[in-house]
């Protein structure tokens, strides 16, 4: 295919990606070093209250935003502030103070570090669980009678396609207050339980939600991979006296390895941007993720202001994290590509 034809085929797609993905990235990068504020002025205001004989008048100096005469909006200025927004997000002074005083736990009181801790742990803890559970379901379905497979796959797909917020909510409603499962646990353990009153129970539920939501995806992929396992290799393994576990360990898992890497890559990407579950479980006060932090900065506060520059800084920090997480798998892909080329 000539370059010109190729260009016209991919142009619309590349144009959209550049306009709506690459350009915003540059814009965010620039904004993270800037800060836009309303121009303030100090004016003297005299307020009078009716009093006996004469009015009681007080003059005070108030700081108010300058209103543009033409458009009726507040005037704003944009200034370069360097790393100020990053400092505001990272709160390094508190960070070093916590380290200096030896109270490492205090670091996790700071919004950003709290979110970072959760996001990383969430990504890394659920990864092996998703792969493991997905593989187990795939093996079990592969083992089941042919008639059952269709309905089982249908049921298994439900947690995967359901809207993430709704999926999280549906689990939330089982446990909230004296929800049906909390009531069951209370009866079983014979004590009062409030699932949403402390961070660690919420966190466990979020972990559970993620595995519940993503394991079907891993299952479908692994199930397809299992259909192509080489039966001859499997039989020779049997003849060589390999038991069931050894066959799984030395024949099936290596066969599925590319798929496991694929799942891991997708999972790293998706899990790192954990967001919907924070909304669904309403865990903002206890457990937050990096993406939620940016969302929070972008949501207008009571005065209608959005902390755009802090959001940009937190977004850039989030990006750095994903680069670190993906650098290993991507290097591997790169080496494979080069190895394949030679």
């Amino acid at each position: 295919m000539k370059f010109k034809t190729f260009f016209w085929f991919v142009a619309p797609s590349v144009f959209m990606m550049l306009l709506f993905i690459a350009a915003p990235l540059v814009s965010v990068f620039i904004q993270s070093f800037q800060i836009t504020q309303p121009v303030m002025q100090q004016i003297e205001v005299e307020t009078c209250t009716p009093g006996f004989l004469t009015q009681t008048c007080t003059t005070e100096i108030k700081t108010v935003p300058v209103i543009d005469g033409e458009t009726g909006r507040t005037q704003t200025t944009t200034a370069w502030v360097g790393l100020q927004s990053y400092k505001n997000v990272l709160q390094m002074d508190k960070f070093w103070a916590a380290i200096g005083s030896g109270n490492w736990g205090d670091i996790l009181q700071i919004d950003f570090w709290k979110a970072l801790r959760f996001t990383l742990m969430y990504t890394l803890v659920t990864l092996p669980l998703v792969v493991g559970v997905g593989l187990m379901i795939a093996l079990a379905v592969n083992n089941a009678a042919k008639v059952l497979r269709g309905p089982v796959i249908f049921v298994s797909l439900l947690p995967f396609i359901i809207t993430p917020v709704i999926g999280a909510l549906s689990i939330y409603w089982l446990f909230v207050g004296d929800g049906i499962l909390t009531a069951m646990l209370e009866r079983w353990l014979d004590r009062d339980i409030a699932m949403f009153a402390q961070a660690w129970t919420i966190e466990l539920l979020i972990y559970f939600y993620r595995v519940w939501h993503v394991a079907p995806f891993a299952f479908v992929i692994f199930y397809a991979g299992l259909q192509t396992v080489n039966m001859d290799t499997l039989e020779s393994a049997i003849i060589d006296g390999a038991n069931r576990f050894e066959r799984l360990r030395y024949v099936i898992v290596p066969h599925l390895m590319p798929l496991i890497i694929f799942i891991a890559l997708i999972h790293l990407m998706d899990c790192y941007r954990a967001f919907d579950e924070i909304i669904g479980f309403r865990s903002e006060a206890y457990v937050t993720s990096l993406q939620w932090l940016t969302f929070d900065f972008l949501t207008p506060d009571d005065a209608g202001n959005r902390a755009i520059s802090r959001a940009a800084a937190s977004a850039m920090l989030t990006m750095i994290g994903i680069v670190f997480l993906l650098i290993l798998p991507l290097r591997r892909t790169w080496r494979d590509h080069k190895g394949g080329a030679h």
């Binding site: 350009a23 915003p24 814009s27 967001f275 959001a311 940009a312 977004a315 850039m316 989030t318």
Partner: peptide
């Protein structure tokens, strides 16, 4: 791989 919030912060 980009988190969507990064992009929205740009838009």
């Amino acid at each position: 791989a980009l988190p969507h919030s990064v992009l929205v912060a740009g838009y």
